[in-house]
Simulated assay, not measured.
Amino acid sequence: MTGNPLPIALIVGSTREGRFGPTVASWFAEQARRRDDVDLEVIDLADTRVPADLSSSPGPEARRSLAAVTPRLSAAEAFVVVTPEYNHSFPASLKSAIDWHYTQWQAKPVGFVSYGGLAGGLRAVEHLRQVFAELHAVTVRDTVSFHGTGQLFDAEGRPKDPGPYEAAATTLLDTLVWWGQALTTARAARPYVA
């Protein structure tokens, strides 16, 4: 690759106690950091204390937490969202983080790494595609999905059969980098207007 690596924000969407998200995110981050065309930053929503409910005006602490995430999202040229599936959808904390921001997502690509039971989090991904489309983001087709997550990872937090997942991660990152570079160039040539 010529030029600078693409800044990608890896967003860990679950904030529940006992969550498996950090294990999945850590594995994916390792895949991304092997590449010289990616500059990865991990944003764990549990660390940022993003509130799960923004139906009313958030208090001062919640506003500070959300505001702290804003420049990190703005600096990214692409995103990867790591999400479980809760009740056929994605976590409320992730929805709050997405909804609090707007221009940060516009004309930037979003990829997904999902995990869960039989469906592997894919129903959550399908809901997220609709949400990001409304925010003028471009979701990429290829995903990494872990079905029956608890049985797929070993005690060290690595997939027991890494081959298919590494191949899926490579495809996702290849596509995301392509879209990220294309959209960065397009926005520089002509600012995006929503």
Results as ranks from 00 to 15, higher is better:
Y192Q: 09
S96H: 04
A92H: 06
P191K: 10
V131R: 15
V82D: 00
V144N: 14
V81T: 01
P191Q: 14
W27T: 07
T70S: 12
E17G: 07
D161Q: 10
I98Y: 03
V80D: 00
A188M: 13
W100F: 10
D47E: 14
V140F: 05
T2S: 12
F20I: 06
P71G: 12
D39N: 11
L176K: 09
G21S: 14
R141T: 15
Y115Q: 08
R123V: 12
E166W: 01
L152G: 02
E30I: 09
T83I: 05
R35H: 06
V80H: 01
S89L: 03
S96N: 07
L118H: 08
L122K: 02
D39Y: 11
L73D: 00
W27I: 02
V177F: 01
V177W: 00
A186E: 15
V50F: 08
L94R: 10
T185V: 03
P7C: 08
N87V: 07
A168Q: 08
R123Q: 15
A52R: 05
A186M: 11
Q151I: 13
A68P: 01
V140T: 05
W179Q: 05
W105A: 02
G150N: 09
V131Y: 14
V144K: 10
G157C: 03
V131H: 15
A97P: 08
E41Q: 06
A182C: 11
K95S: 07
R141G: 07
T139L: 12
W100K: 08
P22L: 06
V42Q: 01
D47G: 06
V131D: 13
D53V: 11
D161F: 03
H127A: 08
D39H: 13
N4G: 13
A189W: 13
R72E: 14
R19D: 09
S74I: 08
D47Y: 08
T143P: 01
R64C: 05
P164T: 05
P60S: 08
Y102D: 11
P71Q: 10
A75K: 02
T103F: 01
A62P: 02
W179G: 00
A194E: 04
T184F: 02
T23N: 04
A107D: 04
F28G: 02
A62E: 13
S93A: 14
P22C: 01
E77Y: 10
R72I: 02
V81S: 01
E41V: 00
S55H: 10
L118Y: 04
A52Y: 10
P159N: 09
G13Q: 04
A9N: 03
L73T: 02
A46T: 02
R123P: 01
R190V: 04
L135N: 00
F79I: 02
P5N: 12
F146K: 13
V125H: 13
R19W: 09
S26P: 02
V12M: 11
D161N: 11
N87E: 07
A119F: 11
P58V: 15
G111R: 01
Y86H: 05
V138A: 13
P109E: 03
W27H: 10
R129N: 12
G21T: 15
A182H: 05
T2E: 14
E77K: 13
E17I: 09
S93P: 09
A119G: 04
S89Q: 06
V82L: 04
F28Y: 15
F20L: 15
V193H: 12
L45K: 12
G117M: 08
P162V: 12
F153K: 07
V42T: 12
Y165C: 06
D36H: 06
